[in-house]
Design a protein around this nucleic acid. Sequence first.
DNA 1: CGAACGTTTGAGATGACTCAAGCGTTGTGG
DNA 2: CCACAACGCTTGAGTCATCTCAAACGTTCG
Lengths: 256, 256
Amino acid sequence: MLTKRLMMNKRAASLPALQRARLEDAISAVHEFAPRANLVRPGAALAYTTILVKGILTSYIDDRRGLRQLVGIHFPGDLVDLHAFSLKVLDHGIQAITPVTVACIAHSELEDIMREMPDLGRKLCTSTLIDAAIYRAWLFRLGRLDAVGRVAHFLSETNARLCAVGLSDGYRFSLGLTQSDLAEICGLTNVHINRVLRQLREEELCLFRLHTVDILDPEALAARGQFDPAYLHIEMPQASSYPIHAKAHDGLALRS
Amino acid sequence: MLTKRLMMNKRAASLPALQRARLEDAISAVHEFAPRANLVRPGAALAYTTILVKGILTSYIDDRRGLRQLVGIHFPGDLVDLHAFSLKVLDHGIQAITPVTVACIAHSELEDIMREMPDLGRKLCTSTLIDAAIYRAWLFRLGRLDAVGRVAHFLSETNARLCAVGLSDGYRFSLGLTQSDLAEICGLTNVHINRVLRQLREEELCLFRLHTVDILDPEALAARGQFDPAYLHIEMPQASSYPIHAKAHDGLALRS
DNA sequence: CGAACGTTTGAGATGACTCAAGCGTTGTGG
DNA sequence: CCACAACGCTTGAGTCATCTCAAACGTTCG
């Protein structure tokens, strides 16, 4: 069931079975990519939209000096590139972080869907509006938080998003980002990210490793990053309020 | 004609007369606000979407210490708050920069429109996708540019957007932002913005004043801010390439 | 005229960057 | 199975960009 997690992360846009089935039918191909593979180059024209089934993707914008800024991160269940449906040309690139599986839906199929099932079209539109809310949160992060706050905010957001699709238990998740990736997300250098991570470790807020992130104190981490999950429009695992209050965590294995 | 500029800034979503007329009909009220008026508080629920007719609005997110980050700026012709249509609750506030005039369309009307004229609904969706591209450009600006670059990028983008709606001639426009506003856009302090503006003045790239901005050298300014207008999906005044090559500028008056 | 607001400038503090070196782990080919 | 290359992480020392605090100036408007 390729679309198991589809839009699970967006309560406001959750899909009834009929709509999901229609999307499943529209899938024309499924592709796998290796880590660091470039799925789409900046400026490319696209004829299809993709559903991320497995793994992690990132959107990036290159600068002139060979550096780049990551402007988005995509988890299983996310619709990627929906904007190319209307705009045709991408202003950014898409790269795999981990090994990924994506399902492709041709734009022409999407046109049909929008005609046949306007409610579903509406949901897709809502999905892009939530993405916009995430962009705004990222702007806040880069514009108003210091280095430690940026990392704390990003990890809190990531934890919340992964919780929504069942890929985090609220305390631990698998990510696969290097410290350099994190630097490109937070607008910092990898050297400084390393120092920030040490500080977060010493303050017992979280542990960041290549393959596993442990959120030791979600509440304090969220506070450090001024993170409030309201903009994600998801159901948080413990009631609607965040941070999570139940503190017990006994080394639960990752539900990969 | 309230919607004269409506979506003029978005070629990809330009409206035929029939569609525009339908939107005009849907306007339930027109309001004016004084500078610095708060149109919407963060967290508020909304029952309508607004078209900005005249003046400048900004979207902002507050931080805990009383500072804030501006996450968007809206010019005449922009649809503001469209995302509240689907999400109902705003994650950010909306404030007037200058005196503004807005036209309100109830969400219930929009529902009807989406049903009656799916093509128009599609255009509205496209409009939000262009907004998303602007968010990505802002992320790039904050994450990868230094202080001078951020200001140069913002002013280049603003010039391009205002050109698209006939409010700039490519060299001069009226803005109404204070240096502190600019600081909140660029993630800097107002003191430092002041020094950046002096530098841009001394390098003869642009002059920033409260009521008038002069772009002395659009090409060099765009280069300094690594600005490429492709993401805006607008027609630039001089062919499709930017920076503008015609340099002649003889003190043309502002076309208010 | 005085108050409010926006701008300008200076001096010192500091957070983040750069450059540089070394360490640990992983994967691969001889 | 070992050696080496590639990659990611860690740390130190010095530099630089931006911030903070503080004061003063100019303009607008009541």
